[in-house]
Amino acid sequence: MIESAATEQDCAFRTAGRERWKPTDFDGLMLLARPRDPHEPWRPSEKEADENRPKS
């Protein structure tokens, strides 16, 4: 739920439930992070994959 609030963005995020999205501050911008399914295997991001790729 998004509601009015005295914040930099003039709003606040609220979530409920077990598998809820998590409001995350990213340099002053509030983003909603989706929780990872615990049964889903971990996969590196493209940036992590590129950083760990052997140099030729």
Score class of each variant (00 low, 15 high):
56 S>R: 13
32 L>Q: 06
12 A>I: 07
54 P>Y: 09
49 A>M: 11
38 P>K: 08
7 T>E: 05
55 K>C: 03
45 S>I: 13
15 T>H: 02
41 P>H: 11
34 R>C: 14
25 D>R: 01
52 N>C: 14
11 C>H: 12
5 A>N: 03
42 W>P: 07
31 L>P: 01
14 R>E: 04
25 D>T: 01
2 I>A: 06
12 A>V: 08
42 W>T: 09
29 L>C: 10
52 N>K: 11
26 F>G: 00
6 A>F: 03
34 R>Q: 13
43 R>P: 01
6 A>E: 06
27 D>C: 07
8 E>F: 02
43 R>I: 11
52 N>D: 07
25 D>I: 09
11 C>N: 04
10 D>R: 10
55 K>S: 14
20 R>M: 06
21 W>I: 07
6 A>G: 08
46 E>N: 09
9 Q>R: 05
40 E>G: 00
3 E>G: 03
27 D>G: 05
48 E>C: 05
3 E>S: 11
1 M>V: 15
28 G>E: 01
44 P>Y: 07
49 A>Y: 10
54 P>K: 15
27 D>I: 05
24 T>Y: 14
30 M>E: 14
32 L>Y: 02
20 R>T: 02
27 D>K: 15
28 G>Q: 04
43 R>C: 11
55 K>L: 05
8 E>V: 04
53 R>Q: 13
38 P>G: 03
30 M>P: 01
47 K>S: 12
36 R>P: 02
8 E>G: 09
38 P>F: 02
52 N>W: 04
42 W>R: 11
11 C>S: 06
44 P>A: 07
9 Q>G: 02
19 E>P: 01
24 T>D: 10
54 P>A: 06
29 L>F: 09
3 E>L: 05
44 P>Q: 06
2 I>N: 07
30 M>I: 15
25 D>K: 09
38 P>E: 13
45 S>K: 04
41 P>M: 03
32 L>R: 07
47 K>Q: 14
42 W>Q: 04
14 R>M: 12
5 A>V: 00
22 K>A: 04
33 A>P: 00
55 K>I: 06
11 C>T: 10
9 Q>A: 01
33 A>C: 12
20 R>H: 13
29 L>Y: 11
33 A>H: 12
56 S>A: 12
11 C>R: 13
22 K>V: 10
48 E>T: 05
53 R>F: 06
